[in-house]
């Protein structure tokens, strides 16, 4: 589904290389986890895949469902089904959550040549997803993420994810800031989205999240490339042994 080949990316106008020949292949229907020490390039990978400014891809390619992902604008990637659950979700002052999300949903639909979702249909869906994630309805009227706690922001990311029904999901440190109950609710939401046509990349520091969302493959990212891979049990081993032996 997504094929990353020898991806090399720099910041600070080429001064610093963050991704250094990273290759990774995630087929549809699979959930892959990326673990690794601080500064390994985990968040950079998520930003390069979603098209954030400030990262220069100097080598390599990313093929996303047959298309050259790196050639697309961020909003085109979103319309093609790529979703990033941010490590630090942004506050959007003055824009109510529901309005923001409906604008996003309909912009994606428009880009795909589909009809807009009607207001009642959208509302109905939002109510049911919010109930599933135990989000209070009045939170959806407030400006997106403004004044929300860290945990509420993370839950709101999952809410958006379930509303937008993306094809490929990247989750960047989604577990940070979540208590155990919230973690379970979020994991249930994510697991419900697992499907043969959908791929997921979970970036995490700790093994904890992977108890709830069990991955098909686990990779270690260090110094800008994948240095080791394994199955779900590999994460437990990493948790025990640490990343030291993978660091340069």
């Amino acid at each position: 589904m997504i094929k990353i080949n020898n991806l090399t990316a720099t910041v600070n106008e080429g001064q610093q290389t963050i991704l250094n020949g990273l290759s990774l292949d995630i087929p549809a229907g699979e959930v892959h986890a990326i673990m690794g020490p601080n500064g390994a390039g985990k968040s950079t990978l998520s930003y390069v895949l979603t098209g954030k400014d400030g990262y220069d891809v100097t080598d390599g390619s990313v093929n996303y469902m047959g298309a050259d992902l790196l050639d697309m604008e961020p909003e085109e990637r979103a319309a093609a089904g790529l979703f990033l659950s941010f490590q630090y979700p942004l506050e959007i002052p003055g824009v109510p959550t529901m309005h923001f999300l409906r604008t996003a949903l309909n912009a994606q639909r428009k880009a795909r040549g589909a009809d807009e979702m009607s207001a009642p249909e959208f509302l109905k869906k939002a109510r049911s997803v919010a109930a599933e994630l135990k989000i209070k309805p009045d939170m959806l009227k407030r400006p997106l993420n403004v004044g929300f706690s860290g945990g509420e922001k993370k839950r709101m990311e999952i809410f958006q994810m379930m509303m937008l029904e993306p094809k490929f999901i990247i989750m960047d440190e989604t577990d940070s800031g979540l208590d155990v109950d919230a973690l379970r609710i979020v994991a249930d939401g994510v697991n419900a989205l697992r499907a043969p046509t959908r791929g997921m990349l979970i970036i995490t520091h700790y093994q904890r999240l992977l108890d709830y969302i069990v991955p098909d493959r686990v990779h270690v990212l260090a110094d800008g490339k994948i240095v080791a891979s394994g199955n779900a049990d590999f994460a437990k081993l990493l948790e025990k042994e640490g990343y030291d032996k993978y660091a340069a």
């Binding site: 604008e73 941010f86 959007i92 880009a111």
Partner: peptide, 11 residues
Amino acid sequence: ALFYMRQRGIP
């Protein structure tokens, strides 16, 4: 904030 909005599909 603009990148966040674009990541959600808003041009």
